[in-house]
Amino acid sequence: MIKKEKITDKKRALLNATLTLVNDHGFHDAPMSKIAKLAGVAPATIYLYFENKQDLINNLYLEVKASFSDCAFKGYDNTMPVKKGFEIIWYNIADYKLNLVNEAAFLSQCDNTPMIDEEIRKEGLKHLQPLLDLWDQGKKEGIIKPLSIFVLYAYTIYPLTFLMAMQQRNLYTLNTKVLDETFQAAWDAIKL
């Protein structure tokens, strides 16, 4: 039992170190040696848990994507009216991005890099399935514009990433009023 806890701690330390280094220096300036050093393990230890750096990055991506979806769909029920369901999901995502800044920054980097394998990216997209289903329901009911999921995401969720980045740089402040206005703008962008 003690041995298993140590293994989990080392794996967790490696994932946390990777998250930190990628956020601070980018994917290419986060070599395995630095990851191991920051995690406080021998470099060879990485290979007990991951095949290579690509496997480590892909695993971290899927783990962070899973935590993102756990937060995004908290309190959501697929029997809710489309707008109410979208509102809950949208505010949950905003909460995630405001409170789990490192994880949100990592996911943002993942959106803009070829480092994530396409197969893994598609697997990560499955974590958003309740939102995609909600949008499909909204299209069928004539509530949401018949646009691709990528356009819907670009107009509703991606602006949050931009605003969070501006807040991190102290160029903008996201308060309740701004979040409410931003949600309304997102909804207005996709509703029929």
Rank of each mutant, 00 (worst) to 15 (best):
A165Y: 08
Y153E: 08
P146V: 06
D136R: 14
L163R: 09
Q129T: 09
I144F: 06
Y153S: 02
I143D: 14
D133V: 04
G142V: 05
L163T: 06
D136P: 06
Q129R: 14
P130A: 03
A165W: 03
P130V: 00
M166L: 11
K140V: 01
G138L: 00
K145F: 05
K140F: 11
Y153P: 00
L160I: 05
A165L: 04
T156G: 01
Q129V: 04
P159L: 00
P146Q: 15
Y153D: 06
G138M: 00
G142D: 11
S148K: 13
L147K: 14
I149G: 15
I144Q: 02
P130N: 02
L132C: 03
L152N: 08
M164L: 03
P146T: 10
L147G: 04
W135S: 02
E141H: 05
L147C: 10
F150V: 02
S148R: 06
Q137F: 07
P146F: 08
M164G: 05
Y155R: 14
T156S: 12
K139N: 07
M164H: 12
Y158R: 15
Q129W: 15
M166T: 02
A165H: 11
L160Y: 11
Y158P: 06
Y158E: 13
F162A: 04
Y153F: 14
L160G: 05
A165K: 12
I149M: 13
I157L: 09
K140S: 09
T161G: 04
M164R: 15
Q137G: 01
L131Q: 08
T156A: 03
Y158M: 10
V151I: 13
G138R: 03
L152W: 14
G142M: 10
W135T: 03
I157A: 04
Q137L: 08
I157E: 10
I157G: 00
E141Y: 06
G142Q: 12
D133S: 10
A154V: 01
Y158A: 08
V151F: 14
I157Q: 12
F162C: 01
W135C: 05
L147T: 13
V151G: 03
